[in-house]
Design a protein around this nucleic acid. Structure first.
Length: 519
RNA sequence: GCGGCCGUGGUCCAGCCUGGUCUAUGACACAGCCUUGCCAAGGCUGUAACGCGGGUUCGAAUCCCGCCGGCCGCACCA
């Protein structure tokens, strides 16, 4: 058995079908992971929560655009030119190396960001050779981290797998702004896969070559960066790690409310502050504890080519330290201007309020889905004495309820199966399990975070009641089968307290108040 | 991509140095049956592995090479 907590978590995740290495029978490929049956359910629930915040609450428009994009789009977005590393190939042994690495190893100097021509001179002047075989280095070439492909037969039409879903939104801007009917700000979201051909992926599910992202582009008038519901978020406390403090090597966090952050100009505008607050709420909603959340301002050198200010939402993990789970970037008019220039189309918008044309600016809250999923698993993982269980939020648990017979005889298995089928028909994710002992079945359910277990026992056969066991407290209540679905539903939605949802187990008769079929 | 370590059933591991009774050890997990009146109990039975490819050898889990993958450090992470 593995010893560390994170090893045991990963063991559980693999064993029980949350996360698997992809293409395993062929030895696997780095940077790719499969979600197993439980992982898929969990991932979908996380996405569902995100939709609740951004599509329902914020009223943003969700679109779904292709993963393969023609070259022009990514030229305009700057990805073809900026999403790159300068590489050099050894003329003798043929290995490709990052120029900046070779140069640093050989000369101790950092040439990051140096123009291509100068790099070649630099290599020449310092006689930098291949660190593997000592061979002469060839021409500098760019390694673009996008996966390249061709569209249609032949190789004339170049395409790329999108590195972010955002560009699919920007290129639809004209149709979207018409859909928004002149109202600003408005937001558009897209949930989908993005692709980045990492040179060397590491850290399991944290650095993937193909991953799911949920991105929101909030379009606004740069002269009016207000959020209509800002007061709802104004008092949310944000823990900020300012760029200035990072540059000075200070670990200090600044705690301010969203409102203060704007007033003190720690954050560029009200919209940014609002979405920082919303991001915090989303993470809390996933069950990440408040103390494990912070916002780190990217320093100038860390920021993407399109960004004027970026905040990373980070979650503290045992295994990987602080993990970036979302990036909130002030993209200004970079993308719309770029696409306007490259396409020749007018991408301004007529503001119904201001009665004038506006070139929108963009604040982009962009979330990974895979990383938060890992964080959720790690924070939910709990060990108590001999018990291992996932303290997942009820609304995130892949399985809602397990249904077991107490014993495998006297018609209990049949009855349990019948109850399980009924719950499934009512729309609950219910699973039946009758192998091993009752204790083992509870343990199996605990391990994957199933919040409730229903047990059919002898009393069920007499009075049609079953017990419901609570995952976290291991206590039980007894309810009528007829009202079971309603009780479970209310429990799962946190509408009633467990102890008040049914009769105490051990009571000789079900008290009157619980003798009704629908609570 | 570099340097170091590593890769045996679902999981964790023994065996490797010192090739051969290895038709591969153990534990846990899983499936079936028995048992079982509520928290991983017990009994029996069963499924199941030497990362991939090449080489050395009469013979390779074991020695050598390449590839793939993993972990740690460096770098990268728009």
């Amino acid at each position: 058995m593995p010893s560390g907590k994170s090893e045991k978590l990963m063991d559980l995740a693999k064993r029980r079908g949350f996360i698997w290495p992809s293409f395993e029978i062929y030895g696997g490929v780095g940077g790719f992971y499969d979600f197993g049956p439980l992982g898929s359910l969990l991932k979908n629930k996380i996405i569902q929560k995100w939709r609740e915040h951004y599509v329902l609450e914020e009223g943003f428009f969700e679109i779904d655009s292709p993963s393969v994009m023609p070259e022009e789009v990514l030229k305009a977005s700057g990805h073809v030119d900026h999403f790159i590393d300068a590489m050099v190939e050894c003329q003798k042994c043929g290995t490709a190396l990052r120029v900046a690495d070779v140069a640093r190893e050989a000369t101790g100097r950092d040439i990051e960001g140096m123009p291509k021509g100068e790099i070649e001179q630099f290599i020449e002047r310092h006689k930098v050779r291949c660190p593997d075989c000592g061979g002469v280095l060839g021409k500098i070439f760019d390694f673009n981290a996008m996966f390249r492909t061709t569209i249609g037969p032949g190789s004339r039409k170049v395409g790329y797998l999108r590195p972010e879903t955002a560009q699919g939104i920007f290129v639809d801007f004209n149709r979207l702004q018409r859909y928004a009917r002149g109202r600003l700000p408005f937001g558009v979201v897209q949930i989908g896969r993005g692709y980045r051909n990492e040179i060397s992926p590491r850290q399991g599910i944290i650095r993937l070559r193909e991953f799911t992202m949920a991105e929101a582009e909030v379009f606004f008038d740069p002269e009016d960066p207000h959020h209509p519901k800002f007061k709802d978020a104004a008092n949310e406390v944000l823990r900020l790690w300012l760029a200035g403090d990072q540059e000075k090597g200070k670990e200090r966090l600044t705690e301010v409310t969203a409102e203060q952050a704007v007033k003190k100009k720690l954050v560029c505008n009200e919209l940014m502050a609002y979405y920082l607050a919303l991001t915090k709420r989303f993470l809390l909603d996933l069950g990440i504890p408040e103390g494990a959340i912070r916002f780190r301002e990217q320093t100038k050198g860390q920021r993407a080519h399109y960004s004027a200010e970026t905040w990373d939402a980070e979650v503290s993990t045992e295994r990987f330290g602080w993990v970036e789970v979302a990036g909130l970037a002030y993209r200004t008019d970079y993308d719309l201007s770029g696409h306007a220039k490259f396409s020749g189309k007018d991408l301004t918008m007529f503001s119904a309020d201001k009665k004038r044309k506006v070139l929108c600016h963009v604040v982009e809250p962009s979330y990974g889905i895979d990383r938060p999923l890992y964080c959720v698993l790690e924070h939910a993982y709990a060990e108590e004495k001999k018990r291992t269980y996932m303290r997942l939020k009820k609304s995130l648990a892949p399985i809602d309820v397990g249904v077991f017979p107490l014993l495998n005889r006297d018609g209990m298995p049949e009855k349990a199966r019948e109850v399980c089928e009924k719950l499934k028909r009512e729309g609950l994710m219910a699973v039946h399990d009758n192998s091993g002992s009752i204790g083992r079945r509870y343990a199996r359910a605990d391990e994957v975070g199933t919040p409730y277990c229903v047990t059919v026992d002898h009393k069920t056969l007499e009075d049609d009641t079953v017990t419901i066991r609570d995952r976290d407290t291991m206590t039980q209540i007894r309810v009528l089968v007829g009202g079971l679905h309603g009780v479970l539903r209310s429990l799962l939605r946190d509408e009633i307290k467990f102890g008040e949802a049914g009769a105490q187990v051990g009571a000789k008769r079900l008290p009157e108040e619980f003798r009704r079929d629908t609570p």
